[in-house]
């Protein structure tokens, strides 16, 4: 393939990656923003979403579309409930102390991962996409007869991948509406600004925290259900999304939702593009180092405003 079509393909792949990453990172950012804690087990909630999707689709009979729709609704819901429960039983008891929460969620990470290993097993398993029409894409050239469109061999995507992008956009709009236009959103923002004052005004802060923690995990799980027809479910699949979400949340500015979305698209795209052209190890190495340096020199993130 020539460079032009190749780049376009890479960008399309990047956009799919970015969509999933946006959802996952948004979950992490929401939790950090409102609760001021870092959830190290976030990647495991993502993994659980994928594994549950496999379970739901293989338990249910019926068409791929019905199975998948069920997974899309049920898996995030179950993961959200589980996370809310973990928050209520564990994080609430360590008073959301930032350091102890990190240690506790590291513990949670291993518990979820290893229980999955013991029950689901070490295999990677696929989930059938609900629809998967191949869509060829056109490219253009300036030839002897001027501008012309043609269909290069290999330049194509699938209807499912376009659906992933669309689903991510819809979810983003949903989260934005929730935060900006509803009473729940108002309560969340109030809690984020000052949890003690919120408590004083009668907001049940602990319950809000459980809700937010559950929502954050559910967003990761949703991202995973979307990705699982492309990538397969595996008990160790949570590590990369965790790392990437960390990167996104830090580059975007800890706790800033808008920054998170911008950074997720940027990093998801560049990760997709870079891994087509460079070795993934080098790309990851540089990205990791960049994140560390951003935290050291610009803790408010690349897009955040400098604090006064």
């Amino acid at each position: 393939m020539e460079f032009g079509p190749h780049l376009m393909l890479a960008m399309l792949e990047g956009l799919v990656q970015a969509s999933v990453l946006t959802l996952t990172a948004l979950g992490l950012s929401l939790v950090f923003g409102v609760m001021r804690v870092v959830n190290v087990a976030h990647g495991e909630f993502y993994m659980l979403g994928a594994v549950l999707a496999w379970w739901i689709t293989s338990l249910l009979g019926g068409s791929a579309l019905i199975e998948f729709t069920a997974a899309l609704i049920l898996a995030p819901l179950l993961v959200g409930l589980l996370a809310g429960l973990a928050d209520w039983l564990i994080l609430r008891r360590v008073d959301y102390d930032p350091e102890r929460t990190i240690v506790a969620t590291i513990g949670l990470l291993y518990i979820i991962q290893q229980v999955t290993l013991m029950t689901y097993g070490p295999d990677a398993r696929p989930v059938a996409p609900p629809f998967n029409t191949r869509l060829a894409l056109p490219w253009f050239e300036f030839g002897e007869n001027g501008f012309a469109l043609y269909w290069p061999w290999g330049l194509s995507t699938t209807s499912y991948k376009l659906f992933v992008i669309l689903a991510a956009i819809l979810t983003l709009i949903g989260v934005w509406l929730l935060m900006a236009k509803t009473k729940i959103g108002l309560i969340l923002r109030a809690t984020q600004l000052d949890s003690e004052t919120a408590q004083a005004f009668g907001i049940p802060v602990e319950r809000i925290y459980a809700l937010v923690f559950g929502m954050g995990a559910a967003l990761a799980a949703l991202g995973a259900v979307l990705v699982v027809p492309i990538q397969q479910a595996h008990y160790l699949m949570g590590a990369d999304p965790l790392l990437l979400s960390f990167i996104v949340v830090i580059i975007g500015g800890l706790g800033s939702l808008r920054g998170t979305v911008v950074a997720a698209i940027l990093i998801g795209m560049s990760d997709g593009i870079i891994s087509v052209f460079f070795t993934p190890t080098l790309a990851k190495m540089l990205a990791t180092l960049l994140v560390a340096m951003v935290l050291v020199y610009r803790p408010q993130g690349l897009f955040g405003a400098k604090p006064a």
């Binding site: 360590v94 291993y110 518990i111 290893q114």
Partner: peptide, 21 residues
């Protein structure tokens, strides 16, 4: 008993942060 020995690590981490800092 199991090769999922990291499970033990996880459980102990959680219990320690909760009950025996």
């Amino acid at each position: 008993v199991t090769d999922a020995y990291m499970l033990v690590v996880g459980v102990i981490l959680v219990l320690l942060t909760m009950f025996a800092r």
